[in-house]
Amino acid sequence: MKQKSMAKVISQEVLADGIYDMWLETPIAMDVHAGQFVGVYTVNRAALLPRPISICEVDREASAIRLVYRVVGVGTAEFALYRQGDYISILGPLGNGFPLETAAGKRAVLMGGGIGVPPLLGTAKEIRNSKSAPSQISAVMGYRNSETFLADDFGRYLQLYIASDDGSVGTKGNVIDALRENGIDCDVIFACGPMPMLKGIKDYAKEKGIKAYISLEERMACGVGACLGCICKTKETDSHSHVKNARICTDGPVFDADDLDM
């Protein structure tokens, strides 16, 4: 059940330039799954809207969630100041998450780019522990440079391939270049990252005749499906909106790439 509540900061550290790693103790942890997100509030009363941040990982025993985020503005700059023992207001769990059951018995690849990498870590963890596990699973993550944050964590769950823009680690180029270079065949892709990457993955999936589930990002206000701020265009008329718009915050953020007009 969605709720707005106070979460206690368990720890916070810097993972890479401008990338922060914060564990929060929250009852929301019991109710979260891979690909969902939370709205995080500032105490700065001039910045009113919740910041949508993907859930990187869940630790149910500790009733904790991990948020890995990039500092991009006044809101995230404030979050970066939080220390162990501080409290922070969050809204969640929000969104639908990745449909992991679609990968049961199939060859799955997790693909993330930039600040789209974190939610795939929780996905790796959850898919390894799920009853409907894929027959084969690997991950391809794309970074700007050698600051390959979370790469070690992925290594705990699966084989990780890396692409970097500057070629300092792994394949020089994007995640699809790395997929091709390493000869990874798959039936299902779960992906999160910048729009050009997601478009590339949609095209790749179409070319190969495979499924791609992609997690989208957009400027949001309410986070709960009421304001209609964060829509994406769909091929068919959406059952909620009755126009060709779906709400990223509630109908997504994860969509079957085939259903999107992008």
């Binding site: 009363r45 001039a46 910045a47 009113l48 809207l49 957009e218 400027r219 949001m220 206000a221 304001c227 209609l228 701020g229 964060c230 829509i231 994406c232 909106s241 009755h242 126009v243 060709k244 718009n245």
Partner: peptide
């Protein structure tokens, strides 16, 4: 039914949106 406008449809500003 109305389609509405293209995104971005919302932006935060100081003390409001």
């Amino acid at each position: 039914p109305w389609e509405g406008n293209p995104v971005p449809r919302v932006a935060e500003v100081y003390g409001g949106m």
